[in-house]
């Protein structure tokens, strides 16, 4: 239990040969983040624009929502048209971490050809990418780079965790592997497999395109987007009006 408190205190495991060693899911910080039990490095998450439910951020810190001049939120019809365009132009970051990246390359090759849906333009610069395919295990030394690359991608962005290692660390429950990339960045679609076949990745990308089409993001619950707030308020107001009108008619 002493080990556990060490974890809770400063948000990372410490090598402690005397105090036993952490085992099992309950000892992994990212799962606790999801349960709201633990808030490691909250300042860091806030700075990256990712905040926990119930937290709020200033607009400046979020990189800015899509707004028309005058602060008018984007109408939902336009958002749908844009979503349709985006779903045919999802350019992933040219970025692979381990063996899963080979299968990702196979998807770009002539047999599976991701260019059919306009995805072959894998951009080397995160500024021009629309999302990441986290292909392979992520070591704790690489993790800050992965987070940084994610943060450099302009909004809107989507993340696909490819392979068991990116999802959960796979068998590498060891000193140097991040136990699931979703402890660091919000993930939209998980593609299990070791490594997944290109067909599996393709299905994951189809699911991702569906989310792109609907303009749904993994960070929806994590950060507030003013345009979306306005839409939600309008929907709520319309729903509040509709039963009232029905009663009058009755």
């Amino acid at each position: 239990m002493g080990m556990r408190e060490t974890i809770l205190g400063d948000g990372f495991y410490r090598y402690d040969p005397e105090g036993g060693r952490p085992r099992g899911a309950a000892d992994r910080p990212h799962l606790m983040v999801r349960d709201g039990l633990l808030q490691p490095a909250l300042e860091e998450r806030t700075a990256s624009g990712i905040c926990l439910p119930g937290e709020s951020l200033d607009d400046d810190e979020m990189g800015g929502p899509v707004q028309f001049p005058g602060g008018i939120a984007m109408p939902v019809q336009i958002e749908r048209v844009l979503g349709f365009g985006r779903s045919f132009s999802f350019w992933p970051l040219l970025f692979g971490l381990a063996c899963c990246a080979i299968e990702m390359m196979a998807l770009g090759g002539s047999r599976f050809d991701m260019s059919r849906f306009g995805m072959e333009a894998m951009r080397a610069s995160p500024r021009q990418a629309d999302g990441m395919i986290v292909a392979g295990w992520c070591s704790i030394k690489m993790a800050p780079r992965v987070v940084r690359l994610y943060e450099q991608i302009p909004d809107p962005k989507w993340v696909l965790a490819m392979g068991s290692c990116a999802i959960s660390g796979n068998v590498w429950d060891t000193y140097n592997i991040v136990q699931g990339i979703d402890s660091l960045i919000p993930v939209d679609v998980y593609v299990p497999g070791c490594p997944p076949r290109p067909e599996a990745l393709w299905q994951g990308l189809e699911m991702l395109r569906e989310r792109v089409k609907q303009s749904r993001h993994a960070y929806d619950g994590l950060r507030r987007i003013p345009a979306r707030d306005v839409l939600a308020a309008q929907t709520a107001a319309a729903e509040a009006c509709a039963p009232a009108a029905g009663e009058v008619k009755a």
């Binding site: 844009l82 365009g85 045919f88 050809d113 849906f117 306009g118 629309d130």
Partner: peptide, 25 residues
């Protein structure tokens, strides 16, 4: 095969890209 699905034989691929690029941060 190259772009195939947006428009006939993927002919409107560039317009999808333009929509996306316009709405990027």
């Amino acid at each position: 095969v190259g772009p195939t699905y947006l428009g006939p034989a993927g002919a409107f691929q560039s317009f999808g890209d333009i929509f996306k690029l316009l709405s990027k941060e």
